[in-house]
């Protein structure tokens, strides 16, 4: 790992000013992805600005929807009785991220800002139609995820919270890579006031995406049988040593069927 200047931000405003002042600064939330990235020298920021001490970024509130502070850990979301009550699929998703030690430190804000193509939270954001709140604005999930590791965030913008509307039905099921446990394909199905939304992670060449063919089939008939014969195109899906694009395409429909069955 290359060395860097380490700074502790006492507030979100501090973090934004530190980012503006740095040559090539980055914020650190739990560090569960950033530190491995730095170790591999895939990034070499001039400054790492730690948000752990910034006030007001942790916590969960439920009123209508569920709002989760950016620095809230996966373990806190997984163990929250409020989240389990209002959006059990989200608590279940958090419980399935990494391992207990990663869940103790990894955060929702860090996961979303990184937008790893196999991360779990982006699927929840997109399927539920979440709103990502930052130090300066609110961004709809539909406008937030912009391809591999790319988001709508400006260089000096910091996520403060994510708000999820509740759903009539919501479920997330993933097919984990047997070794890494990252999603080879993860499918989040939500029946919401805005209609049925299906988001897929782990599979897309450009990261998380909505599967419109599955959404259309489920909109007219919310049942697993409605997905019989509905194929997802392999165009634009990843092919690697773990799975071909065709296999991933097949898994998407299969995982979606299992998801719908689980909440029917």
């Amino acid at each position: 790992m290359h060395d860097f200047n380490y700074q502790k931000a006492g507030s979100v405003a501090d973090a934004v000013s530190a980012l503006k002042a740095a040559d090539d600064g980055t914020v650190m939330a739990g560090g569960m992805t950033l530190l491995p990235t730095l170790k591999q020298r895939l990034a070499a920021p001039s400054d790492v600005i730690d948000l752990a001490g910034a006030s007001g970024l942790s916590g969960i509130s439920v009123s209508g929807g569920v709002t989760i502070g950016a620095m809230t850990t996966h373990a806190a979301v997984a163990g929250s009785t409020d989240v389990k009550g209002a959006l059990p699929a989200l608590a279940g998703l958090a419980e399935g991220i990494g391992d207990p030690q990663v869940r103790n430190r990894g955060t929702i804000g860090g996961s979303i800002a990184n937008n790893d193509p196999a991360a779990d939270y982006p699927a929840a954001c997109l399927a539920l139609g979440a709103t990502i709140k930052t130090d300066r604005r609110e961004i709809a999930a539909d406008d937030f995820f912009n391809g591999l590791f790319e988001t709508a965030l400006a260089e000096d913008e910091v996520i403060t919270a994510v708000s999820f509307p509740t759903a009539e039905k919501a479920v997330y099921i993933k097919f984990p890579n047997p070794a890494s446990r990252y999603a080879l394909v993860g499918v989040f199905v939500a029946k919401t006031a805005a209609g049925v939304r299906v988001a897929v992670t782990g599979a897309g060449d450009s990261g998380v995406f909505r599967a419109s063919a599955l959404e259309q089939a489920l909109s007219s008939n919310f049942s697993a049988s409605a997905l019989n014969g509905v194929a997802v195109s392999a165009d634009g899906l990843m092919s690697d040593i773990h799975a071909s694009a065709e296999y991933r395409a097949h898994l998407i429909t299969t995982m979606a069927k299992r998801a719908v069955t689980a909440v029917s």
Partner: peptide, 29 residues
């Protein structure tokens, strides 16, 4: 492993288990 996977480096930080290979010393200040 030094890649947050194997868990040989687990310690407790304020009572919570964490992988000490994936934390800066300064984060434990």
């Amino acid at each position: 492993c030094d890649t947050s996977q194997c868990g040989a480096c687990v310690v407790h930080i304020d009572g919570e288990s964490a992988k000490s290979c994936t934390m800066l010393a300064l984060q434990a200040d």
